[in-house]
Design a binder for these strands. Structure first.
Length: 653
DNA sequence: CGGCAATGCGCC
DNA sequence: AAACGGCGCATTGCCG
């Protein structure tokens, strides 16, 4: 198969990082510096605006060559919005585009070109000087508003471009493309990114008006009280310390505990409450929305294919995967029926009156925060149809562990949280009469204990105010009574992986097969997909409970918290990885079908599918049917799959 | 001023 | 006898 490596260099007054490739490519000041390309490993060639059209490139594409770039959404946006309309370049069929970033993602490598090449030890020259040259000419000079025209810098950028083309070619040679099933998912991801999410900009402006109206007075009150701005953490801490000791920091956890339980002086309490509203960062999404929305009110390029090593997508730009859920109560209408919060929240915010919003919901900033996801709307004449899988990770971990009794209960319609609480308390628990037991014991234990969390962490995270013994009892119940097969799964996966890394021979456990492939440890899962762990190395490690108990273990290299780190692999982690990955495979198996059968996808959120479709076809029951029609591997594994779906004219939870 | 690292916080 | 994980963005603080 023939392939073309493509790399555009551009300049613009638009901020690519803030606005994303689509808005950037449509910005009037954006233009090409050059296009570098290499056909079938030939030496890179360069096209510059004004040059004759690169006929060899067009011929290769017309003959069906793959068109490959690193972060291909950028190249596609530039091609569609500049090269075709302004320079007459022919359209590239959707199926011909490919992205070396996707190849990196599949192998759990860093997604940036430099980082991936460096970690792989690929011999491509590093061109810092070229990069600096590009940085100098890609933005207008602040004072004049003109782009620098220094020919020396341009020549330097042309060289830089060639180096990048060669680096991408190196990546492609080393990593190759994707399996067919991953290619299908990659293409669905491209479609999603091109469709984008519709934004109700008018409502976003309403929200911003409420924020603007509320924020000034809040800031003024804080500054009058404390004498510094709310963002100045260290100065505020000093101020608190003069009035009340015992604040190690100002994390949410500490502040919440202080507000609830400590006998704070009134002024400290007031200042903390004010600061909470003022420093609320989620409302910055309103600005992000303005920045990355196109002329047609849609924001594109929001979902990174396989952004996490497990295969989950990552969010970009306005990051649609972490909208606050909001803690606005359901009100009741005159018949005593619950009113969905958005039906009150949205009209209230549309008044743009912070005091009115405050009178209904307490803090106007918190109300905006809760309403952020409602800015997402379908196109006129369409509806959002969406749904999520019910407690999917808890179900997958039980299935993978072979905990058949609990799976049978789920199939009979039992509620997992009630069932666990019942096991623990030794008496029947039901959803209606024992809300508290279900919520405070059943739910955290089912969700928290599947991946090896110990009692100390469990206590700290879920029941700080309860006796430690209760936390211990939850953890013990899960491990020894409720799902004893699950700990066996942790140890089984750990043992299989350790043996594979030490002996370099494949080992399986419960349908997961670890093997050494090239520079990776792979884990082939029941879904057929493989997880990758880069540079696995044997190591010896002391057990947490006894520093003298040294056992074989292994480490791998991955990007964590933004930088490359060596990570210690242990059973709970491996289990978590496989379970998260299987949930993703289930999601995309169904998403592909939904997309094909009348529910064009616009977003996925880990266990949730969001589609946008004509009002006439917007039947959530049909989507639910698609989602619950589990693939063969999930049925064989015994995963009970359930989905809850809805249709509506605003995004919601 | 810009880049980088660390931290905090939102989601699943 | 066993340890939660997976993300990105905004902000602060530090460095050049």
């Amino acid at each position: 198969m023939s392939y073309v490596i493509l790399d555009h260099e551009t300049r613009s007054g638009c901020d690519l990082k803030k606005c994303g490739a689509f808005v950037y490519s449509q910005h009037p000041t954006t233009s090409l510096i050059c296009v570098g390309y290499s056909i079938d490993s030939a030496a890179p060639k360069l096209w510059k605006p004004g040059d004759e059209a690169p006929q060899d490139l067009f011929d290769a594409i017309a003959a069906g060559a793959w068109v490959v770039a690193h972060n291909v959404l950028f190249e596609r946006a530039i091609w569609e919005n500049i090269l075709t309309p302004q320079w007459g370049w022919p359209a590239v069929p959707e199926e011909q585009w490919f992205d070396t970033m996707a190849s990196c993602a599949r192998r759990a490598l860093p997604l940036d070109l430099d980082g991936a090449c460096r970690l792989l030890g690929l011999e491509v020259q590093k061109d810092d000087e070229g990069k600096r040259a590009l940085m100098k000419i890609c933005k207008p000079v602040k004072k004049t508003g003109e782009f620098p025209e220094d020919p020396v810098l341009y020549e330097r950028v042309y060289e830089y471009n060639k180096v990048d083309v060669l680096a991408e070619a190196g990546l492609l040679r080393r990593l190759r493309m994707l399996t067919q099933s991953e290619m299908d998912i990659f293409r669905l991801n491209q479609r999603m990114n091109f469709r984008g999410l519709g934004l109700d900009l008018r409502f976003a402006a309403d929200c911003q008006a409420v924020v603007d109206g509320a924020m000034g007075p809040l800031e003024a009150r804080f500054e009058a009280l404390v004498g510094c701005r709310a963002g100045q953490r260290d100065r505020f801490l000093e101020w608190i310390d003069e009035r009340y000791g015992g604040f190690p920091n100002l994390t949410k956890e500490v502040v919440e505990e202080a507000l609830e339980d400590w006998p704070l002086p009134d002024e400290v309490r007031t200042a903390l409450e004010l600061r909470g509203a003022i420093t609320s960062t989620s409302i910055k999404k309103l600005e992000a929305m303005r920045n990355c929305v196109g002329a047609d009110s849609r924001a594109r390029g929001l979902v990174q294919y396989h952004g996490a090593a497990t295969g989950r997508d990552a969010g970009r730009l306005l990051q649609p995967q972490n909208f606050p859920r909001g803690e606005v109560e359901m009100g009741k209408d005159e018949n005593g029926d619950e009113i969905p919060p958005w039906e009150v929240l949205v009209p209230a915010l549309q008044t743009r009156d912070p005091e009115f919003v405050g009178s209904l919901f307490g803090c106007p900033i918190a109300a905006v925060s809760a309403a952020l996801r409602h800015v997402i709307v379908p196109a006129p004449g369409k509806l959002l149809v969406a749904g999520d899988f019910s407690t999917i990770e808890a179900r997958i971990v039980l299935a993978l562990a072979g905990q058949h009794d609990r799976l049978a209960l789920i199939r009979k319609g039992a509620d997992l949280y009630c069932d666990l609480a019942s096991t623990m308390l030794g008496r029947p628990i039901n959803k209606k009469e024992h809300k508290k037991e279900r919520q405070a014991i059943g739910k955290p234990t089912v969700l928290g204990c599947g991946f090896g969390m110990g009692a100390p962490k469990f206590h700290k995270r879920y029941m700080k105010k309860e006796p430690f013994a209760l936390a211990q009892s939850c953890v013990d119940t899960y491990r020894y009574d409720w799902a004893p097969e699950v700990p066996r799964l942790w140890y089984g996966l750990e043992d299989a992986a350790v043996r594979t890394v030490w002996d370099r021979k494949p080992q399986s456990y419960n349908g997961c097969t670890y093997a050494i492939e090239d520079e990776w440890l792979t884990c082939r899962m029941p879904s057929g997909r493989k997880l990758y762990y880069f540079k696995p190395r044997p190591c010896k490690k002391a057990m947490p409970w006894d520093p003298n108990d040294i056992r074989p273990g292994w480490t791998y290299v991955a990007k964590k918290a933004g930088r490359v780190q060596t990570i210690d692999a242990y059973g709970g982690l491996l289990t978590e990885n496989v379970v998260q990955a299987l949930a993703r495979d289930l999601l995309y198996d169904r998403a592909l079908v939904a997309d094909r059968e009348g529910f064009p996808l616009v977003l996925t959120v880990h266990d949730e599918i969001v589609s946008e479709t004509d009002e006439a076809r917007a039947d959530p029951k049909v989507l639910q049917q698609i989602m619950e029609d589990a693939p063969r591997w999930a049925i064989d594994l015994g995963v009970p799959v359930g989905a809850e779906c809805w249709a509506g004219d605003r995004y919601r939870k």
